[in-house]
């Protein structure tokens, strides 16, 4: 979807502000929010792509002012609300309704280390041969899907060159919307900075994006 998360190439956000000796969490609640969204019980079929899509549905004005973990909190709430695993009333009160039954299958503390090492893998073997080969010129399609996609606006309609092929991968555009893995060949495409940004860009610079086959056409 064409909203504020697609930040590449925008002006006006000012200087980058690195912090000295930054710790992973600035406040205790950030770690709790991060932990909840990682280790809570998810609805069946939930995917990382749905996660990213839900973050994109945050109101654009809030997206720009909320901290990262505040956005995670929003995602966690949305996941559980849209699956009916919690109700808005329960969320407002911070307490389970008396009718709710307590589950006993949430992730245990001793499973965290393995969980972080055994994430779902997005690679999927594909029988059909890749359409493009390394060195081939391609153009990123001009497409404006209202749902989730991983083709940023700044690359749409621009030409580049395939520099590597990664095999089949789950297509986020499908997986974010309950349409299964729908795997496609994934490629790294190199775009000259001048192709993306015009004559003012440095002639030696380039930007690389990982793009699925349906995002591309021969150039």
């Amino acid at each position: 979807m064409n909203t504020i998360h697609d930040l590449g190439g925008m002006h006006g956000f000012g200087a980058i502000a690195p912090e000295r000796d930054e710790s992973p969490f600035h406040e205790t609640w950030e770690g709790r929010a991060g932990g909840i969204l990682e280790v809570m019980t998810f609805p069946p079929g939930f995917t990382v792509d749905r996660f990213r899509y839900l973050r994109e549905t945050l109101r654009p004005d809030l997206y720009l002012v909320q901290s990262y973990y505040e956005q995670w909190l929003y995602i966690a709430e949305q996941v559980l609300l849209e699956a009916g695993m919690i109700s808005a009333e329960e969320l407002a009160r911070g307490k389970a309704s008396p009718q709710s039954t307590k589950r006993n299958d949430s992730m245990r503390a001793d499973a965290v280390w393995d969980f972080l090492h055994d994430r779902a893998h997005s690679g999927r073997p594909l029988a059909q041969a890749p359409r493009f080969t390394s060195g081939q010129r391609v153009r990123a399609r001009n497409m404006q899907p209202a749902g989730h996609t991983r083709l940023p606006r700044y690359a749409r309609g621009r030409s580049g060159m395939i520099v590597s092929h990664h095999g089949g991968h789950v297509l986020p555009d499908a997986s974010a919307h309950g349409k299964g893995d729908a795997p496609q060949h994934l490629y790294t495409v190199r775009f000259a900075a001048r192709e993306l940004w015009g004559a003012a860009a440095h002639p030696r610079d380039s930007v690389h994006l990982d793009l699925w086959e349906s995002y591309l056409e021969p150039a």
């Binding site: 932990g35 280790v39 949430s106 992730m107 245990r108 280390w113």
Partner: peptide
């Protein structure tokens, strides 16, 4: 609701 264990968040 048994959807998360605080000790797992700690970990």
């Amino acid at each position: 609701k048994g959807l998360v264990d605080p000790a797992t968040i700690d970990a």
